[in-house]
Structures are given as structure tokens and as C-alpha cells.
Amino acid sequence: MSALLSVRDLGMRFGGLLAVDGVSFDVNSGQVVSIIGPNGAGKTTVFNCISGFYRPTSGQVSLLGKTISGLPGHKVARHGLVRTFQNVRLFRTMTVVENLLVAQHSRVDTNLLTGMLKTRAYRAKEAAAMERAGFWLDQVGLREVANREAGNLAYGQQRRLEIARCMVTGPRLVMLDEPAAGLNPNETRELDELILLLRAEHDVSVLLIEHDMKLVMEISDHIVVIDQGRPLAEGTAAEIRNNPDVIKAYLGES
């Protein structure tokens, strides 16, 4: 079977700076893949290129065999790929449930006219969207705060809401950029369980950037190491842990 996401020879140049150079890897269906590397290695740039936030200067990204590199972000999302950012980017003045509804904007295929006339099809689709939002509120344990403004939630809740917001779009692949940043050990363990749940029950693959090595080693099927924009190593957790190049990049020359 071909890969769900396939990244081939990805390159991103900002003027004279080559931030990402020759990065290639695959994410198969049902896999959790992590990208790791020292600070400034270009991990987030890789994410930005894949998700359509940047337009990569070279290379190709395809999802389920269709090329998505160079597409605008909303088209990439409609192909089934969504992401989070390092910092929380919820719609802070909207309520929790509105955050989940607006993410289904492109799924609820209605227009201004049907909206104004409140046709039966429109109402049915809005009801379905609401039901999906409710389901994910339960999954991430946020139903009690559904009508609070997202900006007023505790930090850990905001992180979970972001993942729920990705999930209501009905993705095939979710990309999480440092989801554990700023979480306490307890919350990190909950996150760990949530990510595994996504894979086990919702047929979603996960591409992860994370600095918490314990989390990475526990849940990743495959790890890609990037250093200074170039691929350094690839393999399972055990392989990466014992790779001399990786150890050198993280700890410096010995």
C-alpha cells in the first residue's frame, strides 16, 4: 500500500538561507511519526511546508497519492490534513463549541442562501456538525466548559481543545507541533493517551514534533531526525536512541 503522506526531497529557501534541504519521509496509515532535532533544526518549517502555510521552494508533498505541495492551506485541509502550532491558536473570543463548529465550515456544504432560508438540508447538516462537536467535547473532557470563551480555559484544556478542533474536520493526518509544551507530567500522560486513542479508534495518523523525549519514544512508530535543515537519521525509537550521529547532534562533539 502506498504511504498516506509522502514527502520527497522537500526544500525551503528564505533568500540566502536554506532552512530545509532534501527532507524525505513517509507516514503510513495508522502510524505515529515524530520529527525531532535540536532547536532551529527546521522542524517547524517542514510542518509549515507540508500544511500549506508556506509554499516549499522545492520537492513534493503528496497525500493519498495527490500532490498537495503549493496548494493553499484550506485546500490542504480539505484533503484531510490539519495541524496545530507551537503556541495555542484557538479563536479566543469564540466559545469552545463555536471553535469546533467553525472548523467544520468546509464540511458543512451550505451557502448563504440555504443559510438564510434555513432549509431542511442546512438544518440537518448544522445538527450533524453540532453532534460531532459534542462527541469530541466528550472525548477530550471539555463538555462542561462548552459555552465558555476559549481564551478563558486553562492551558491544558486549550491544548486539548486544539486537538479536538483538528479532529472535527475529519482528517486522515493530524500534525501536532509540540503539543506537550508547557504541560505538566500528568497532562502529558493524558495527551499521550489521547494521541494513541486517535490512532486506535479514529483511523488517523499523527505527525508529531516534540521535545519531550519520553513521550516521543513511547508513542512513535517511526522517528525522523533533522539537523540544520537536513535529514540526519530515520528509524524506530530503539534505532534512534543508539544512533551515534543523533547523540552527537544533541550533545555536541565529544
Partner: peptide, 25 residues
């Protein structure tokens, strides 16, 4: 109340994020 209005509010808060969630900004 409306779905498009919701998308407008989302865009005015964070256009980049709204786009990555599938809204044609």
C-alpha cells in the same frame, strides 16, 4: 448566528489558522 458569520469571526481572530482549518479565507 450564521455559519458564514462564524467564519468571519474566526478569520478576524486568526486568518492563518482559519485557512488551515479549511476555510477559504
Amino acid at each position: 448566528r450564521s455559519r458564514l458569520g462564524r467564519a468571519c469571526r474566526a478569520c478576524s481572530e486568526d486568518r492563518g489558522m482559519a485557512n488551515l482549518l479549511g476555510i477559504d479565507t
